[in-house]
Amino acid sequence: MKLATIDEAAPLAGTSLGGTGWRLLDQETVTGFGRLTGDEQWIHVDPERAAAGAFGGTVAHGLLTLSLLPGMVDELFTVDGVELVLNKGFGRVRFLAPVPVGARVRGVVRLVSAEPRAQGFWELVFHVDVQVDDRTGLALSADLILLYR
């Protein structure tokens, strides 16, 4: 969805924005995230050891999956004339199931609310459910709060 101005967002509260494209979470991405963040736990970065573990293989970091949400929203929702978009944070984050390395994920996004704030900002809350391509149920569910100006 592409809006001409941010004030067009308010009447769209409650609207589903649909699903994003699928994104592969491969071992290189997961290992790189672990290296960057210092979370190199074997369930994420050691395929041999993880094969004998509880998940039968390596799994993506929950925080890696969560970090994909701003890009997922941006794929489905843009506003012309916005000079700045800030990530205010997350709400109601739930890690519901592990994401196996090699799986593809996508976000299903809904605009929850759009409210004007101080200094010319608008606060938009998006609810994102992250699906894994080879299973029913969700891997993650969270609200993403963005500030637009």
Rank of each mutant, 00 (worst) to 15 (best):
G62T: 05
A118G: 05
Q41L: 09
V45D: 10
G34H: 00
G107E: 09
T31Q: 14
R49H: 06
R94Y: 08
L66S: 09
L76T: 05
E40W: 02
G34P: 08
V59K: 00
V101M: 03
A118L: 11
G19A: 15
G62H: 02
F126L: 07
D74H: 14
T20R: 01
E83C: 03
G32L: 04
G102N: 02
P47K: 00
D46G: 10
L24T: 04
P98H: 01
E28W: 08
G89L: 12
E83W: 00
R92F: 00
A54I: 03
A103D: 15
D26A: 08
R117Y: 02
L76V: 06
R92V: 03
D129N: 14
L25F: 10
A52Y: 10
E123M: 13
Q27W: 06
E28V: 11
R104F: 04
Q27Y: 09
G32N: 12
R110F: 01
E40A: 12
A60C: 01
P100M: 08
P70A: 04
D129T: 11
G81F: 00
W122N: 03
T78K: 08
G18C: 11
R35T: 15
V101F: 00
R94S: 13
V108H: 12
D46T: 07
L17V: 08
R92D: 15
T20S: 13
L68M: 15
A52P: 03
G107P: 13
F126S: 02
G62I: 01
D129Q: 15
G120E: 05
P47D: 08
